[in-house]
């Protein structure tokens, strides 16, 4: 479940990213004598990097949510989702909210320090997003 929720946006975004590559890049690579293999790895994949990273971002967010929910339902015995359920049983509301805050903070840190930095760097390199 976690796997599917995470993988779908990655696949969709990668495919979309590759489809939106300007055909001129592929044409000029063919003119330079590139094989299909080289065009895929040296032109199409790098050109779609930004879309792939966006896919990873959504994929990770989805997986994170499903992971917490799964812990609650399955009752794994460990994990933040399980901890929330457990504090509900023991009427320990403070602990439940602390867990919720921890979940938010982890998500936020991954977003801000991980993906945003990577995305910004790619965009700067490609000359996107600056006027």
């Amino acid at each position: 479940m976690i796997f599917i929720m995470g993988l779908t946006p990655i696949i969709i975004n990668t495919a979309g990213g590759i489809r939106s590559i300007p055909p001129i890049y592929i044409k000029s690579a063919r003119m330079m004598g590139a094989t299909r293999f080289l065009i895929f790895f040296r032109v199409m994949l790098p050109a779609a990097t930004l879309a792939i990273v966006t896919g990873l971002r959504i994929g990770l967010a989805n997986s994170w949510r499903v992971l917490i929910a799964a812990e609650m339902i399955v009752g794994a015995g460990v994990g933040l989702g399980y901890a929330i359920i457990q504090s509900r049983w023991s009427l320990d509301f403070e602990a439940a909210f602390v867990c919720v805050v921890i979940i938010c903070v982890i998500g936020l840190v991954v977003e801000k320090l991980g993906f945003e930095v990577v995305e910004k760097r790619i965009m700067a390199q490609m000359g996107l997003g600056q006027d």
């Binding site: 000029s28 004598g33 490609m126």
Partner: peptide, 19 residues
């Protein structure tokens, strides 16, 4: 029979790889 570097093309729009 197909594209080849012996027939080099310069296109109208920019075809440089941005990365």
């Amino acid at each position: 029979s197909g594209p080849s570097p012996e027939r080099g093309v310069v296109f109208q729009e920019s075809s440089l790889l941005p990365w």
